[in-house]
Design a protein around this nucleic acid. Structure first.
Lengths: 160, 160
DNA sequence: ATCAAAATCACCCTTTAGTATGAATGGCTC
DNA sequence: GAGCCATTCATACTAAAGGGTGATTTTGAT
């Protein structure tokens, strides 16, 4: 699938080049007649190709991340109390436990009942990475199991 | 911090432009002398500025990563009115789910982060029995994992 | 520029969780 | 007493979780 995308872009790039070639032909003709516009001509070329480069980069970069945003459905039901109680989860608890931001993310997904595999897919990291995070969370929260970790995090106000 | 970055890039861009201007001056001189290399000159310009564009875009695009992270949070669906949730705690939910009393006991211990083995010891039954209960709980709550079961039970007011 | 912490991933191995199936017992109801 | 269901337990298997170690790469801060 990655190859497809690349080929597609290659084609688009080719077509764009052709179009630009024609445009340049025309510009060249225009500015060859209107003497003294040589610098303008160069400038236009520079500008055009800079823009092309930007456009190209954007084209090639976006799919890699846009795909990422696509979310598969998760059977989660969470209610949002209208007030703003836990906007700042618990900076103090965070500090005292030493839980990092990434670990907190894992912890939250864990509290939603996700498996390590699901968490991995959700955060776009490998299963091993999630396991590492989870292990570190256990150490920092001083627990042995994920259910305990969720309990603990809930009690100390780290989540929810 | 965003402004800083942009300014930084603007400066870099300016410097690059200056450098390229010098380069172009040189190239211009070269190819003006060596006649017939006009096309090559244009090509080089196009290439250079395309690369500049790509580079620029890549520089400016990097922060996009974090935006994606924000979007990930929007996976929610159902909600439970935050008002008076625990007034009518279990009975109705118990009936609707079909959770038996024994299963509820297991569920509560499960929510405390106990392992199946610990639950078994706590209730003076075998590990296998606990497993059976747990499996039945999963079916009745329509979940796949114990963490989900705890989540579900908490939300529906079955526990706590 | 350097240094430490955070984040990432891999491999191996053990333990626990979860699934499927079957079965024995006791209580309850019709 | 037949049927139903909750409770109990077993065996066997697969899937996931968890532990330990080591390594690389990104960052952040000095």
């Amino acid at each position: 699938m990655a190859l497809k995308t690349i080929h597609k872009h290659t084609i688009i790039y080719g077509v764009s080049l052709a179009a630009l070639a024609l445009l340049l032909q025309w510009l060249q003709w225009r500015f060859v007649i209107v003497q003294h516009s040589y610098e303008i001509f160069i400038g236009v070329i520079a500008l055009l190709f800079t823009m092309l480069g930007v456009w190209l980069a954007l084209r090639l970069m976006k799919p890699a991340k846009e795909t990422i945003v696509v979310e598969r459905e998760v059977i989660i039901t969470k209610e949002v109390p209208a007030s703003s109680p836990a906007i700042v989860p618990a900076e103090k608890v965070l500090e005292s436990t030493g839980i990092s931001s990434r670990e907190l993310e894992v912890l939250q997904l864990m509290a939603r009942g996700m498996s390590n595999q699901e968490i991995a897919e959700n955060l776009y990291v490998s299963l091993n990475t999630v396991k590492t995070h989870v292990s570190n969370i256990f150490i920092k929260l001083d627990v042995k199991r994920r259910t305990q970790a969720v309990e603990q995090a809930r009690k100390t106000g780290l989540i929810e």
